Measured scan of single mutants.
Amino acid sequence: MLDDRARMEAAKKEKVEQILAEFQLQEEDLKKVMRRMQKEMDRGLRLETHEEASVKMLPTYVRSTPEGSEVGDFLSLDLGGTNFRVMLVKVGEGEEGQWSVKTKHQMYSIPEDAMTGTAEMLFDYISECISDFLDKHQMKHKKLPLGFTFSFPVRHEDIDKGILLNWTKGFKASGAEGNNVVGLLRDAIKRRGDFEMDVVAMVNDTVATMISCYYEDHQCEVGMIVGTGCNACYMEEMQNVELVEGDEGRMCVNTEWGAFGDSGELDEFLLEYDRLVDESSANPGQQLYEKLIGGKYMGELVRLVLLRLVDENLLFHGEASEQLRTRGAFETRFVSQVESDTGDRKQIYNILSTLGLRPSTTDCDIVRRACESVSTRAAHMCSAGLAGVINRMRESRSEDVMRITVGVDGSVYKLHPSFKERFHASVRRLTPSCEITFIESEEGSGRGAALVSAVACKKACMLGQ
């Protein structure tokens, strides 16, 4: 009897593995994704193909990295998701002549009506938060230079001027797309009239992360975010950046690689679950690469896999709870928690219980395998993109072996128990001629924006502006 049951459990697990095998990517698959990513990057950089390229390769006008001589107080704003952060950054000489960066910050959550109302409502709310922060720190009387981390696709015309191309991540505030974001912020500050600010720089969160990590390690020339969304930036040779005049030196390019796949480059790798996630998203047909990796989508992918296993009578005796059938019910943090389970399955059992399920031991094991399959594919897909960037940098610099540091931020990278190990191992397999160091950014977005502002202020002083 026991043997029969054991055989049935083994057969069930084997069927589960057959279904989950769809998520496995072979090294040849990853090399294919990497080569296609490089081709799209090239198209994004070139003037004649930029418009139709899915990977936009947006110039950021960040050319210099901090040298350690900029000092002063800077205000930093960070808008990239449902939370908005205001930070005071003091850049100065530390002990023994070292450079020191001290920060104080406060988080504000953005109400739904500000995210989806008008641009005026959104930026009025942001300036209200700045006003509140300055009151708390008794700094209303000071006109501070301000660095703005704005983590949406922007076409820069200068370091302090950028046109919002399109909202992502659930934002829909009308009247912002096609307009200068810094102008919208300046107008809102003017409307309030109770404080003055000098907006000197606007950067993407990947750029802010790279600059913040450069402060720790001067070989950091790539910034990457794996959180709600997924994106990367890197220092490109100016001669390859056709959208900006000049051939000397390097400029940081914001790849906006989340949109890779929007022209069909990933079609052969998309599964039924991916198509369902895409169809029910706020932007169907867009940001397809990001939807395979980002935390906004990972939990939902797992939920759809679990429903398939229920329908195949391989999980929960073929019956799903009402909660499990509800879109968004299986949160991405559950994926991390399930994979963090120590082996007694308590954590998995508790999560499934909150979803109205009474799982068996085998159910718990199957749910864990589903989570591992989805998150491992995410790590491997992400590795193909980064390997594409790094191999490109090595080739354009004609280096036999390139040493490089990548600064990384984002909740999936930082909080998932195995993502970074799987990701690092896969990147290294795909970049055999590179020695890569990964560092995690601390308060990256805010500190990085302030350091970019410090560079901009120093330049302005040198130019006598």
Rank of each mutant, 00 (worst) to 15 (best):
T255P: 06
S353N: 09
L463N: 08
A6D: 15
L463Q: 14
P153K: 13
M402S: 13
V408L: 08
Y215Q: 01
G299R: 00
P66R: 12
E157T: 14
V253G: 01
G44T: 00
R368P: 01
A10P: 11
E399W: 01
E319A: 10
M202L: 15
E177W: 12
S426R: 13
E245S: 12
G227M: 03
K39T: 12
S109N: 12
M462L: 12
P59N: 00
A173Y: 09
A119P: 08
D205R: 12
D365T: 10
L271G: 04
A387L: 02
T49K: 06
S353E: 15
V16P: 03
P284G: 09
H156D: 12
R397N: 13
M251T: 15
E339T: 03
R325P: 03
C252L: 02
A259S: 06
A387N: 02
G92D: 15
M462K: 15
D187E: 10
I159C: 14
S375N: 13
E51A: 13
I19E: 08
E256P: 01
E93W: 09
R397M: 05
M202I: 03
T362A: 14
A188F: 01
I19Q: 02
M34A: 07
T168Y: 15
T65Y: 03
C371M: 02
S441L: 10
D160E: 12
K90D: 06
F148C: 13
T118C: 11
S336R: 08
A11P: 04
Y61N: 04
F171W: 10
S321Q: 07
L134A: 09
M8N: 11
E22L: 05
V241E: 00
G299V: 00
Q219L: 08
E256S: 14
R303P: 03
H156N: 04
L307I: 05
D113Y: 13
E372T: 07
D267Y: 04
S353R: 03
T168L: 10
K12I: 06
L47M: 14
G448C: 06
L243R: 01
R63C: 14
S174Y: 14
V199G: 09
K420T: 05
M462D: 15
S321N: 09
L185K: 05
P417T: 04
R275V: 12
L306A: 02
N231H: 15
L352S: 05
S426N: 14
D78K: 15
T255Y: 04
A232T: 12
V253R: 02
K32V: 10
H137V: 09
G356H: 06
V302S: 07
Q323L: 10
K140R: 10
Y273R: 00
C220E: 02
R327T: 13
R345M: 10
K169D: 13
S418V: 11
C220N: 02
G81H: 15
K140L: 13
R43C: 14
D363W: 01
D135T: 11
L314W: 03
S445I: 15
Q98K: 11
L20C: 14
C457N: 15
L430R: 00
V199C: 14
L386F: 04
L292S: 10
D344V: 03
N254F: 12
G261L: 03
D194L: 15
I436N: 00
Y273K: 01
E245I: 12
G178C: 14
E290F: 05
K13Q: 08
G264P: 00
L270R: 08
K346I: 03
A460L: 10
N283W: 05
I189Q: 02
V305E: 00
E22M: 04
S375D: 07
T255D: 02
V406A: 05
G92I: 10
I110G: 01
V408Y: 02
C230I: 07
N313D: 14
E442K: 12
D124T: 07
L271E: 03
A450N: 07
G464A: 07
Q286I: 14
H218P: 10
S373L: 12
E27L: 12
T116Y: 11
V181F: 11
K296V: 12
R394W: 02
E322F: 05
Q98M: 10
Y234F: 14
A114R: 12
L146M: 06
D132W: 06
E322G: 13
A449P: 06
N391Y: 10
E48V: 08
L301N: 01
E290N: 07
R5I: 14
G97Q: 15
E268S: 14
S396P: 01
E399V: 09
K143P: 05
V335Y: 02
L184W: 13
A449C: 15
T65L: 15
D205V: 03
R7F: 15
R36Q: 12
S360D: 09
M210V: 02
G448I: 10
H105P: 02
L304A: 11
M34Y: 10
G227S: 08
K143E: 08
S174D: 12
E96R: 12
E242S: 08
V305L: 11
D341G: 04
K346P: 04
R85A: 13
A173V: 08
V406L: 02
E395D: 15
R192P: 04
L184F: 06
F260E: 00
S100A: 10
S174M: 13
R422S: 10
R397G: 04
A282V: 13
P284R: 14
T326C: 10
V16D: 03
S426I: 06
R63L: 10
T332N: 11
R447M: 12
F269W: 15
S263N: 11
I404S: 04
S212W: 04
E120C: 12
Q347V: 13
W167P: 07
G81N: 04
R46Y: 03
F150W: 13
T206E: 03
E421T: 07
Q347R: 06
G227C: 03
C434A: 13
A21C: 14
G285Q: 09
H141Y: 12
R422I: 10
A384Q: 00
V244F: 07
D158R: 07
I404Y: 04
L292R: 04
E300S: 00
E22F: 02
E339F: 04
V401Q: 05
R7I: 14
E443S: 01
E27N: 02
L77A: 15
C233E: 02
E268P: 14
T103I: 05
E256N: 07
L307D: 08
A425D: 10
I366M: 08
Q98C: 10
V33G: 01
T118I: 03
F316K: 00
F419S: 00
Q106I: 14
L144E: 01
N166Y: 12
G94Y: 10
M107P: 05
D311L: 05
N179V: 14
K12H: 11
R275M: 09
E196I: 09
G294C: 06
F260M: 14
F334D: 02
D365F: 12
V241G: 01
A449K: 04
S433A: 08
L386C: 10
G410F: 10
L146R: 05
G80C: 03
E70G: 12
G81R: 08
E312C: 10
K39F: 05
E331M: 05
R7N: 15
G229N: 09
R191W: 02
A282R: 03
A201R: 08
G318L: 04
V367Y: 02
G178M: 10
M87T: 04
D341T: 04
V374Y: 01
F150K: 15
G97V: 09
P359L: 01
L352I: 11
A176Q: 13
E216K: 10
Y273C: 05
C434L: 03
A208Y: 02
G193V: 06
L243V: 06
E319G: 11
L288P: 08
I211G: 01
W257V: 01
A208Q: 02
C129Y: 05
G385N: 01
S76G: 11
A282M: 05
G175M: 07
E112D: 04
E52T: 14
S64P: 09
K172F: 13
L77K: 01
S109T: 06
A6F: 10
E242I: 03
G295Q: 13
V302C: 11
R43M: 12
F23V: 01
V33N: 00
G92V: 11
M115Q: 14
R345K: 12
G294I: 05
V55S: 00
E339R: 00
M139G: 05
E52P: 02
L301M: 14
R325D: 05
P111H: 13
G299D: 05
E14H: 02
G227L: 02
G170Q: 04
S353H: 11
T118N: 10
I390W: 01
L304T: 08
Q38T: 01
Y125Q: 14
C382M: 08
S127N: 06
H137T: 04
D262G: 14
D113L: 08
T342S: 08
D3R: 03
G193N: 03
W167V: 15
K169F: 09
E395P: 02
A10S: 15
L134F: 03
